[in-house]
Design a protein around this nucleic acid. Structure first.
Lengths: 159, 159
DNA sequence: TTTAACTGTTTACCTGTGTAACAAAGTTGG
DNA sequence: CCAACTTTGTTACACAGGTAAACAGTTAAA
């Protein structure tokens, strides 16, 4: 270490480093999110899927023939933002924009076999990444965390 | 509502909408983070501080005379990224870059009185925003959530 | 003294997002 | 049937937040 670790000046109070930020859920949520997101990228490697592409592919497989508008709504982003994501997945032959008989505006998103295979492999890698990153948390702790995060997510409906 | 809610085709399995994503901590973390971040902005208004500026100011007040490198390290961002943040705070007269006697490279960040006042007001607004957004969580739940998020944050040290 | 390291800064870039406009297609009310 | 509205996918653009690389000035180490 190069310098004085912190140089907190004379008026260092005794409250053991407590910053206001440390008590804020939003601050801790962001810091935790950044750590997980960086590890996700590192785990999936240089040419792995981004988290959002992975999510999109996952939902396309879970709900085949979903439309882009529906998918965007599910992912909580704008339709316009989805275009690039679907473009990327289509370019990699992971899915296909297929015309829908009844409605010529929409294009159903149908995953290819290669898409399903790529998804399975990626899901495995993602689960390994989470298992490793959260190895110091018990199964119960992870369950609790998931439940609490979902509780926050429930606030989305009421705009 | 306009259309079929979801158009999940014939092969709708009975697992009650469970998507792989819903079990992933990373996915839930991101969705929750986005909700909180949007509410933060809305709560602080058009010309309120961004979260990162608020964090920077908070740490400058908690650790007066901190340097930019130290602050960047604390915030988990690069030095270069901090320049704009400090520029903004200095432009608003919330803090000052002050020369340090022993080392002509560094500039100590010292909050002004106006900066402290603005911070107090903003902190109050931020706490109100969190109280309202998390009103359906008990104090114990919030404590648990904070503890679990900090547990994730602890993984940052080991790069 | 030469070499290495650190600080703040600029610049260029990338990712993920939103907003606004648009044409094409569908829907609805008279 | 027609006019008015709505929806879909798409583009163009802007912006926030962040990284990486280079730089000059300064300090520390060999």
């Amino acid at each position: 270490m190069g310098r004085k670790a912190l140089q907190r000046s004379n008026d260092m109070d005794l409250s053991l480093d407590a910053s206001d930020l440390e008590d804020l859920i939003g601050y801790n949520l962001k810091r935790a999110y950044v750590i997980v997101q960086i590890d996700f990228r590192k785990a999936l490697g240089q040419d792995g899927m981004s988290a959002r592409v992975f999510s999109a592919l996952s939902l396309c497989i879970r709900y085949p023939n979903i439309t882009q508008s529906e998918l965007a709504r599910m992912m909580g982003i704008e339709r316009s933002g989805l275009v690039a994501i679907v473009d990327e997945l289509e370019a990699k032959k992971h899915l296909q924009r297929a015309p829908v008989p009844g409605d010529r505006r929409v294009q159903a998103l149908v995953p290819t076999e290669a898409g399903r295979a790529a998804y399975d492999a990626t899901l495995k890698a993602v689960r390994a990444h989470e298992d490793r990153l959260f190895e110091d948390m018990s199964a119960e702790e992870k369950e609790t965390l998931l439940a609490l995060l979902k509780k926050i997510r429930n606030r989305e409906e009421d705009a």
